[in-house]
Computed example of a mutant assay.
Amino acid sequence: MTTPPFPAPTSAELAVVSAQLGRTARGVVGIAARCVCGNPTVVATTPRLPDGTPFPTFYYLTHPAATAAMSTLEATQIMPELAALLADDESVAAAYLAAHQAYLADRAQFGDVSEIDGISAGGMPTRVKCLHALAGHALAAGPGVNPIGDEALARSSWSPERCRCDDPGAATRDEPDA
């Protein structure tokens, strides 16, 4: 097993993530991306939650303003446009496949779960299914790794360059529980 690119979360970080989620965070192994103010934005989650449930979403977007922005994008029917980009541009498709493979390799550092073998998140490598998961991966991996996640972030009203941690109107969530 290789060393993950982030340290284990502190109890204070887990408290922030739990507040962001509105419930106790489960299976968090690290903070994979942060707001400019230092608060968690994306957590890395074990591939099997403490209750035994398989959980393919290794990079989980927790920042309320970021999740609200991805929900808004999904509501604007951008998914078919991003799916067309994936289908029509071979370089985007190749980068998306590489992002899928990198995602699986990152998650594998925390164990193999046969029920989710080969499944990453967000529809990778062939579909665009969940912008929350794709943006979470793009934020954790950095620009240029996940082209669809990068595109979703670029088109959203939220920016990782501007803190919105105290924005009470940005607490909308429509992702499965981490």
Rank of each mutant, 00 (worst) to 15 (best):
T62Q: 06
Q109N: 11
A105D: 09
V29W: 04
Q77P: 07
R107Y: 04
G136S: 15
A108C: 10
P125H: 05
A133T: 10
M79N: 03
A65Y: 00
P47F: 00
P168M: 09
R26H: 13
A140Y: 12
L14H: 09
L73D: 06
S114I: 08
R34G: 12
D166M: 12
R155L: 15
A25N: 08
Y59L: 05
P40N: 14
V16T: 15
T62E: 07
L104F: 01
L73R: 13
F55E: 07
R155P: 15
G122F: 06
E13G: 08
S156W: 13
S120P: 06
P176T: 12
W158K: 07
A108K: 11
E90I: 09
P40L: 13
T76G: 06
Y103M: 07
L82Q: 01
P54C: 11
T57E: 09
E115D: 10
L21D: 01
G142I: 08
D117Q: 12
G142P: 00
R48Y: 00
D150Q: 02
Q109K: 11
S156N: 06
D117I: 14
A15H: 09
E13V: 12
T45M: 04
R164N: 14
A66K: 03
G30N: 06
H63L: 02
R48T: 10
V42M: 03
S11R: 14
Y59K: 10
L153P: 05
A75F: 00
V128Y: 01
P64W: 03
H100M: 06
Y60A: 05
M124T: 05
G149M: 01
G111H: 05
A12E: 15
P176H: 09
S120M: 09
A133P: 04
P64A: 00
A99R: 03
L21A: 05
P160K: 12
A141S: 15
A32Q: 13
W158Q: 12
R155Y: 13
G142R: 15
L21G: 06
T24Q: 12
G111Y: 04
E115R: 05
T76F: 06
A69N: 03
I116T: 05
K129N: 11
G122D: 06
L21V: 08
L153R: 01
R164G: 14
G169R: 01
V36G: 08
D177R: 13
A44E: 03
Y96D: 00
M79Y: 02
I116V: 10
A65T: 04
I116A: 08
A75Q: 10
F55V: 00
T172A: 15
G122Y: 07
P143F: 13
T62F: 03
A93G: 05
S120K: 03
Y96M: 02
V145S: 07
G122P: 09
G118Q: 12
L104S: 06
S156I: 08
S91V: 06
R34Q: 14
G111M: 02
V17F: 01
G118L: 09
D88F: 01
P50W: 04
M70T: 06
D167T: 14
H100P: 04
A141G: 10
D89Q: 10
A95S: 02
R48I: 03
P56G: 01
S71P: 11
A33V: 02
M70A: 00
